[in-house]
């Protein structure tokens, strides 16, 4: 009887151990696939180009060099572009997060006519690819006329007043202020789901205490939703940082790091007068990629504790 129990216990233990070992193998393998390109990037960026085909070097180069990075920094005008990109992505994503939280709260907690249709339109904006609307947006920004105020002089027989917003940061900020920036539909959706999940009693309690809807939102809801704010901020920061479609269209000089990276190839060609060394090319491209990915990765690592926590605690997107 005791023996039988022992055997049962043992087989259960063996099962558990094999299970966790195989799970560990799967997880480590998948993690490796995900980290591999980053490691490759780092390894390539710091090695002299002569060591690319060196069979004795796999990960750690025999000698470290900062030449690739220094070279790419000057080619990409990294300092200037980094400042500009940081400006665009931080401010746009903050504006977008603020506006989307307000809109998401409106969709989650109020009943009004046409709410479901309007929310359907929010989802609709996610489906429409940016390529569809980019040309009219471009033309619209070239002769921008906010709320048709510029048309007022026409009534008096004068030329309409139009502002050219191209090449200004307003092309990024304005849509963000009005909750229509990059993938704003998704941000609104996340906020709506989050606010829907908060208990109804909070609102009732604050209404009893004499708070209006605006005060309730600012005093009760916003402090509770820091995890949703962080998650959406992280997403939209990364999307703005990596964007090269909108910024490539609206900024003629291309002052963002993503754009600089996409034009790095032709710059490398120009430096070497049309002919190029493929090894030099590989290390330079990898160094450039590292410079572009670096800042958002650092932001992610700083915020990731809150980020994963927010997923664990509330299931923000549930």
């Amino acid at each position: 009887m005791i023996l039988e129990n022992n055997v049962k216990h043992l087989s259960k233990k063996i099962y558990k151990v094999t299970f966790s070992i195989s799970r560990a193998i799967i997880i480590i393998g998948l993690c490796f696939i995900l980290v591999y390109p980053l490691l490759y990037m780092i390894s390539m960026a710091f090695r002299p180009e002569s060591q690319i085909l060196d069979p004795s070097v796999i990960w750690i180069p025999r000698s470290l060099t900062f030449d690739n990075l220094i070279n790419v920094v000057s080619l990409m005008e990294y300092g200037k572009n980094l400042k500009n990109t940081a400006l665009i992505s931080v401010f746009s994503s903050v504006l977008l997060v603020l506006s989307c939280s307000v809109v998401g709260y409106g969709f989650a907690r109020f009943k009004f006519k046409g709410r479901d249709i309007l929310f359907g339109l929010v989802l609709f904006t996610i489906i429409v690819p940016p390529q569809t609307t980019i040309i009219p947006l471009f033309l619209g920004f070239r002769s921008f006329d906010f709320a048709f105020l510029g048309k007022i002089p026409v009534l008096f027989g004068k030329e309409p007043v139009m502002t050219n917003l191209l090449n200004t940061l307003w092309t990024m900020y304005l849509p963000a202020i009005f909750a229509s920036g990059i993938r704003s539909g998704l941000c609104i959706y996340i906020f709506r789901q989050f606010y829907k999940g908060l208990p109804k009693e909070l609102e009732d309690a604050s209404a009893v205490d004499g708070c209006g809807p605006v005060k309730t939102f600012l005093r009760v809801m916003v402090p509770l939703s820091s995890s949703a704010f962080i998650t959406v901020f992280l997403f939209s920061f990364v999307w703005y940082w990596n964007d090269y479609y909108y910024s490539g269209m609206f900024f003629i000089n291309g002052n963002t790091v993503s754009l600089a990276l996409s034009s790095l190839q032709s710059k490398l060609l120009a430096v070497n007068e049309g002919s190029y060394d493929p090894y030099r090319y590989i290390v330079s491209m990898q160094a450039g990629s590292l410079l572009v990915v670096g800042p958002p990765l650092i932001v992610y690592i700083v915020f990731q504790r809150y980020f994963t926590q927010s997923i664990e605690k509330v299931g923000i997107v549930g």
Binding site: V103, G106, K111, T125, T133, P136, I177, F178, S180, F217
Partner: peptide
């Protein structure tokens, strides 16, 4: 009153939708 507040909350999006989505479309 509540429904008006609702419209107020989503008002920024309505402007953005018209200016940066509907008009281009």
């Amino acid at each position: 009153k509540k429904s008006l507040y609702g419209y107020g909350f989503i008002f920024p999006w309505i402007i953005g939708f018209i200016l940066f989505f509907l008009r281009p479309l």
